[in-house]
């Protein structure tokens, strides 16, 4: 008898967000309340950070109307993360890449990770393909979508705790800007990054796509820094080749054939 499973789905921040629960807690009455709480936290982040809403605090901040000392704590947190991300990635990730302050590249992962902490211990939250995963015992099996075939998989990971983020141009067309050139990034079709925090997995995945071809060079700065931060990556380059960091293989489900891959880093 398999333990119960339940799933909920909502559209927030323009993204399909699903929450899956497993085990005895999934069947308890409190489960639905915890899920509702997590969705509410995501809607709250959307209200605060939406770039489409001219009245948000952030817009006023970007326009110089708001003093940082009186800014809501969440906005200070995200702006501090943005500075850290630029420094840690040596500029490959920059919330000013498009020429203005656009923290949406940080907010999604950060808000999803924060919301996931409100969920029972055997759960995952998937925000448009970026996942915050928790389990007390049995790992969740996470498929990595194939960039050439969204109904097929590149590989399958076993994940107990942490974040898995995938960036690329499959569903939206090129939308990541290389901050060093100001032009659309090229060279990486898809980057999947795994590590303890979804916020940082998402930042690294975006940084790697932004770095583009530079990420594929031996000793690449962005990959070296990603590894030093404790995150591993699986990339598909524009020519269809797959690349993995040395530690990534440990996350691949043993019953799944590992994709033929070139070494990264």
């Amino acid at each position: 008898m398999q333990p119960p499973r339940r799933a909920w789905t909502e559209m927030i921040m323009g993204l399909p967000i699903s929450i899956h629960l497993r085990g005895a807690e999934a069947a308890e009455p409190g489960a639905a309340a915890a899920v509702a709480h997590a969705f509410a936290a995501l809607r709250e982040a959307d209200r605060m950070f939406s770039p489409y809403r001219a009245d948000t605090v952030l817009r006023r901040f970007a326009g110089g109307e708001v003093d940082l000392t009186t800014t809501p704590a969440d906005i200070r947190t995200v702006l501090a993360l943005a500075r850290q991300a630029r420094d840690k990635t040596a500029g490959a990730f920059d919330v000013h890449a498009s020429g203005w302050l656009d923290p949406s590249g940080i907010v999604k992962g950060w808000a999803a990770e924060r919301a996931s902490r409100l969920l029972p211990a055997d759960s995952y939250l998937n925000a448009g393909g970026d996942m915050a995963i928790r389990s007390p015992a049995e790992p969740w099996r996470i498929g990595i979508e194939h960039p050439a075939d969204p109904t097929g998989l590149l590989t399958v990971l076993r994940v107990r705790n942490g974040g898995v983020a995938t960036s690329g141009s499959v569903h939206r067309g090129p939308h990541i800007i290389d901050p060093t050139t100001g032009a659309a990034a090229s060279g990486i079709r898809q980057a999947t990054v795994i590590g303890t925090s979804l916020t940082w997995a998402d930042i690294w995945a975006t940084a790697i796509v932004a770095a583009g071809n530079r990420a594929l060079n031996a000793g690449s700065a962005v990959i070296t820094r990603c590894l030093a931060d404790g995150y591993d990556a699986l990339l598909v380059s524009d020519d269809g080749s797959t690349w993995i960091t040395a530690g990534f293989g440990a996350h691949i489900a043993p019953d799944t054939p590992a994709p033929p891959a070139r070494p990264l880093g």
């Binding site: 559209m11 969740w140 979508e145």
Partner: peptide, 20 residues
């Protein structure tokens, strides 16, 4: 592959409809 979830490049509403 018996998967529980799928990580993919950010999908919007339209992409989601056809996603695993």
């Amino acid at each position: 592959a018996h998967i529980d979830g799928v990580s993919g490049a950010t999908y919007t509403t339209e992409g989601y409809v056809t996603s695993l």
